[in-house]
């Protein structure tokens, strides 16, 4: 799973499908579903968060207007969200998919997202725990100093 999520779209491919998208838009004032999907498929594999977000927006629209391709859109919505560490939405899409179809490809994405999100949570707890320790230390030191001062004053 990691390899799939770390794979980055070649720049020339992203540009090619971006051009195709822009070309159709300019020529006809609208873009075919096929071209939208191809462009979004490249965007969610980009190294840049803004591209991925743009890809997610296109996929969300496609999922609404084109039910026939919905399983592809929902999978890549989960995938794109996983790549920008938006784990709660990623899991939401995985679960929505698995409710309709039992699928190992989606299940392994779901497992990966769960693991990453648990890891992040543990990291967050460690940071918070560390901060509490430091704060406790400072407080303790302060109290000790104050007591010391009191003693000396007596």
């Amino acid at each position: 799973m990691e390899e799939l999520l770390n794979e980055v779209v070649p720049q020339e491919d992203l540009e090619r499908f971006e051009k195709k998208f822009a070309h159709e838009l300019e020529l006809d004032g609208e873009v075919t579903i096929e071209t939208k999907f191809e462009y979004a498929f490249c965007l969610v594999r980009s190294r840049y968060t803004n591209d991925i977000r743009k890809g997610i927006m296109i996929l969300e629209e496609l999922a609404r207007v084109h039910p026939d391709g919905r399983r592809d859109y929902i999978y890549y919505l989960a995938f794109g969200n996983a790549r920008i560490k938006n784990y709660s939405d990623g899991l939401k899409y995985c679960r929505a998919f698995l409710e309709i179809e039992s699928n190992d490809q989606v299940r392994s994405l779901e497992e990966y997202i769960k693991k990453q999100s648990d890891k992040d949570m543990a990291k967050g707890m460690a940071v918070a725990g560390g901060a509490a320790l430091v704060l406790g230390g400072i407080l303790g030191l302060g109290i000790a100093l104050a007591k010391n001062k009191q003693k000396r004053n007596n």
Binding site: L4, R71, D72, Y75, E101, D104, Q105
Partner: peptide
């Protein structure tokens, strides 16, 4: 053997 194998979405990976 995977008995009922749904259509792959995009690409899959194995090592």
């Amino acid at each position: 053997f995977m008995a009922n194998c749904p259509h792959t979405i995009g690409v899959e990976f194995g090592t």
